[in-house]
């Protein structure tokens, strides 16, 4: 027996949820599916493969005020930003839930990033299993899967006319206390199988594939935009600057990408990563070698967003396979 909720009941439960907390859910507009705050359940898209942007922006916003700077007579006062209210993200896919678990490593490492920590603590994750594996998906090669409940509070899996409901955490159970659940004999559809990507020993392989002409050749094609980093559920590099407007001063944090021209260039002009190849390689090495070294996790969840959105088809699946080949051959 499983706990079950009909599609109609799901909408009414989500509608109630949206009344008591900020509800972030997939919304379809202008032909795109993006996470956004919803006030009514009817706004929520349920028939989507995955959102164009990952949900990371709701915990690590593209633009975040760290604190405001107020000039008081004879001095300065810094007013920390605060996070208010509870939130829930509905419709998060297992790959993106893993993405948040990966983001926890840098952001919750001591000393914890205060805003991220507060948002994370106040945001419940209501996952939705994947009904299909898109061609670009490879989550099963990165330790999760289309119906992996391990990184969410509640997991819903579409079955028949409704959803099988798994309360994964205590928080999930509490949220479901008022949900119109029924006990039902439903079999979940078989989980889809994404095409595997050879991620075995990728960090070790990466060590041997560092100094190869492949990176320069790949970078020929790269146009060094920030797109891959901004759609990625894991990329977490950021920039910090002050923003002054009409006498109001704020310290801002914004997304940044290792592909942007000022990423590693220091004031005065010295650019340590001064070739296109070195710049592009940094993206893959940070994910596949440096994050495993520093945090013990690979900085990729197999969501495939960078694969679908790269303007010139720099495909991380192909890059990983190529690294396996190059890392193996230079070892022998």
């Amino acid at each position: 027996m499983s706990q079950f909720m009909s599609g109609e009941d799901l909408r009414s439960w989500l509608g109630n949820l949206a009344q008591e907390r900020t509800l972030i859910a997939p919304i379809r507009s202008d032909g795109l599916v993006l996470f956004g705050a919803v006030s009514r359940a009817e706004e929520i898209a349920l028939d989507y493969d995955n959102t164009l942007l990952s949900p990371k922006g709701h915990l690590f916003p593209a633009t975040d005020t760290l604190f405001t700077i107020e000039r008081r007579e004879g001095g300065i006062e810094l007013v920390p930003a605060s996070v208010e209210g509870e939130a829930a993200i509905f419709g998060i896919r297992p790959c993106d839930a893993l993405g948040l678990r990966v983001l926890d490593r840098p952001f919750l490492a001591e000393p914890a990033d205060a805003l991220y920590q507060q948002r994370r603590a106040r945001t419940a994750l209501i996952g939705l299993s994947c009904h299909k594996a898109s061609p670009e998906c490879f989550c099963t090669s990165l330790g999760t899967g289309p119906d992996d409940p391990s990184n969410v509070d509640i997991l819903l899996t579409g079955a028949g006319e409704g959803y099988i409901v798994q309360a994964v955490t205590e928080r999930g159970k509490a949220l479901l206390a008022t949900a119109p659940l029924v006990e039902a004999e439903v079999t979940p559809p078989p989980a889809p199988s994404p095409t595997p990507v050879p991620t075995e020993d990728i960090a070790e392989v990466a060590r041997r594939a560092f100094d190869v002409p492949y990176w320069a050749r790949l970078a020929d094609r790269c146009i060094h935009c920030n797109l891959c980093a901004y759609v990625c559920p894991v990329c977490y590099c950021f920039d910090i600057r002050d923003h002054s407007y009409m006498g109001r001063m704020e310290r801002m944090r914004t997304w940044e990408s290792c592909q942007s021209p000022g990423f590693s260039r220091i004031a005065g002009g010295y650019e340590p990563r001064d070739t296109k190849g070195a710049r592009l390689r940094q993206r893959f090495y940070h994910k596949l070698l440096y994050m495993p070294e520093q945090f013990g996790v690979i900085g990729c969840t197999g969501c495939g967003r960078c694969v679908t959105s790269c303007p010139v088809n720099i495909d991380i699946r192909e890059v990983i396979s190529e690294m396996q080949r190059l890392g193996a051959s230079s070892a022998s």
Binding site: D30, L34, A62, I223, C225, N226, W255, S260, P311
Partner: peptide, 16 residues
Amino acid sequence: SQHFERCIRCYACRQA
């Protein structure tokens, strides 16, 4: 306004 609000300043337009 609606279109620019979605911009994530990835600069793919510029880079292409």
